[in-house]
Design a binder for these strands. Structure first.
Lengths: 225, 225
DNA sequence: TAGATTGTTAATCGATTAACAATC
DNA sequence: TAGATTGTTAATCGATTAACAATC
């Protein structure tokens, strides 16, 4: 398998290709050219071909790409061709929302454990998975060989907990805590910083309204009674 | 205000600067140089100076940047210097999680309305905000001049609902539905595609384990009983 | 003043796009 | 075979980094 040194830009686009291919598959489309896909996805055909060729030649000259084959291959590249256990650390609102989100399962991810320090939450069941005490997390992770942990805990504890879990064998953190984790280089990390995302949206909104002529002073969407 | 044509790469970094400056502020740090900040944030000092200079000269030669001033300025750039109303469309797990997440409030965002089609959910209160019937959303948005809507509804309805809300005056969508919205060019959009984020993490994990020597076959973190 | 550090220009690097020969 | 479309190389574009004169 060739793989080393695929740029972050390419990796970021792969799941989107995967999603569009899934849609095509559901529509019963059998083949697609980079040109047609590029129009649907609003990217260049060149980029699609370049991206895919980082991983191998999946198409055929004069024909294009077989939708099902390409879908399967990208799934394999992303590691979706097998079941992967995920533990959720923190059974707050966000942790519960993730545990309830069934879409992950369709990509092979299985929420196999949920942990919290709050005795109020321990013992509750979410989609058939019981919330366990945080102190049991390490043993559970070791026992089941869990590699991925979703961190939905407060910022203050995130760094410490991540370090502890890494010591238990977690190799990948899906970090929702609004902080940067500093982990050993072999541990991988994907941040979901919702506050930052909302700030970016705010910037775009502000920026768009400034460019569209007059500075629409006044109502800000808040009831001031 | 200069603004036109700031690259997405720069905008993406602004909230992170804002977060680090907030930390410094809380620690009581008064001034910081681009060099010191770059070391903390693990970016180049050059990039920090370049990024900031897109918006103006906030520093002083020989001194660096005043933390509080820079923090305030970036907040202003991001539009966090005022209260901004946000409605949540879809009171499912994720919608509830967003409504409960108090951090947004500290950046000036106020959840002023939550809407759902489900009669079971309508009338419930989340952090003092009542879930209202979806059919009331348009009037509410117009009445309160709400500009931002968080879309936490199923994929199937997202496109239609977004179009309807745009017609009611929503200018910015924070889209959690796993689909691409096609909206008029003056409408801004920030996607949070959680499934795609998890897939990227999966890719990184797979990729990292392949590079670290032997292909650790076997346990996948799933109980197979 | 001397030292430090910015703001800004120039150089480098990487990613995207265009072009086209290979080939189905 | 002729037409279509890939895989891949070359050209362009943009973003990052380095360098340094300006200046506090």
């Amino acid at each position: 398998m060739n793989d080393k040194g695929i740029s972050a830009a390419v990796i970021k686009r792969l799941p989107r290709y995967y999603r569009y291919l899934n849609e095509l598959l559901e529509k019963g489309v059998v083949r697609i050219s980079s040109k047609e896909l590029s129009q649907r996805m609003n990217v260049t055909a060149s980029q699609i071909r370049q991206d895919l060729n980082h991983f191998g030649g999946f198409g055929q000259q004069g024909y294009g790409y077989n939708v099902e084959f390409l879908y399967t291959e990208i799934g394999r590249i992303l590691g979706l061709d097998r079941k992967t256990g995920v533990v959720i650390i923190g059974a707050g609102n966000l942790g519960q929302a993730l545990a309830n989100y069934t879409d992950f399962g369709r990509s092979g991810f299985i929420i196999c454990g949920i942990f919290d320090v709050d005795p109020q939450k321990i013992g509750r069941e979410i989609r058939g998975v019981k919330v366990r005490p945080m102190q049991d997390a390490c043993a559970f992770i070791k026992e089941h060989g869990v590699k991925i942990a979703a961190l939905t805990i407060p910022r203050e504890n995130a760094a410490r907990v991540a370090a502890e879990l890494a010591a238990c064998g977690v190799k990948a953190f899906w970090n929702f805590a609004p902080t940067d984790l500093h982990l050993p280089p072999e541990i991988v990390l994907e941040n979901v910083h919702l506050s930052e995302s909302l700030m970016r949206l705010s910037y775009k909104l502000k920026s768009a309204s400034e460019h569209s002529g007059r500075m629409d002073e006044g109502d800000d969407g808040i009831e001031t009674e």
